[in-house]
Amino acid sequence: MQNRNLLAVNVLVTLGYPLPSIRKALHKLTGITQPELASRLGISRPTVTATMDGTRGSAEVKSAIADMFEVPVDVLFKPDHASPEA
């Protein structure tokens, strides 16, 4: 059985939401803020922000964030697909 975070991510992916928006939604779903996530992982908040936005982030940081949200790293940080045509 999937945990609720993974289920939510999979539903949002299916609906076509971009991964940066899905990653941001996890903060609301879990109640874990970016500053709290940074503190728990021992990294800076700007690093968390940039990783969650998809602008940068090492494999180690991505893996740690995915673990914190209990979502596989390859689901949470796979390359973004092109936005659906309107």
Rank of each mutant, 00 (worst) to 15 (best):
M1S: 15
M1P: 11
M1W: 08
M1E: 14
Q2K: 15
Q2F: 14
Q2C: 13
R4K: 15
R4Y: 11
N5S: 07
L6P: 04
L6I: 10
L7C: 14
L7A: 13
A8T: 11
A8I: 02
A8V: 03
V9Y: 08
V9D: 02
N10T: 12
N10I: 09
V11Y: 08
V11D: 09
V11Q: 14
L12I: 05
V13L: 15
T14H: 13
T14M: 10
L15F: 07
G16C: 02
Y17M: 11
P18G: 12
P18Q: 14
P18F: 04
L19F: 10
S21M: 12
S21K: 15
I22F: 04
R23F: 07
R23T: 12
R23K: 09
K24Q: 15
L26V: 04
H27L: 04
H27D: 11
K28S: 10
L29R: 07
L29C: 00
L29S: 00
L29T: 01
T30N: 03
T30R: 00
T30M: 00
G31W: 01
G31C: 00
G31I: 01
T33A: 08
Q34E: 03
Q34I: 00
Q34V: 01
P35R: 03
P35H: 02
E36H: 07
L37M: 05
L37Q: 02
S39N: 12
L41I: 12
S44G: 14
S44L: 07
T47C: 14
T47F: 09
V48N: 03
V48M: 06
T49N: 08
A50T: 10
T51M: 07
T51S: 11
M52W: 02
M52H: 03
M52N: 13
D53H: 12
G54Q: 06
G54C: 04
G54H: 06
R56C: 11
R56N: 10
S58F: 06
A59H: 10
A59E: 13
A59T: 11
E60F: 15
K62M: 14
K62T: 09
S63T: 10
A64L: 11
A64N: 08
A64W: 08
I65H: 06
I65S: 07
I65E: 04
D67C: 09
F69P: 00
E70L: 13
E70D: 14
V71C: 06
V71N: 05
V71K: 06
P72R: 04
P72A: 02
V73P: 07
D74R: 12
L76H: 00
L76N: 02
F77C: 08
F77S: 04
P79I: 11
P79F: 08
H81W: 13
A82G: 05
A82S: 15
P84S: 04
P84Q: 03
P84C: 00
E85A: 12
E85S: 10
E85M: 09
A86Q: 09
A86D: 13
A86I: 14
A86H: 10
A86T: 14
A86P: 13
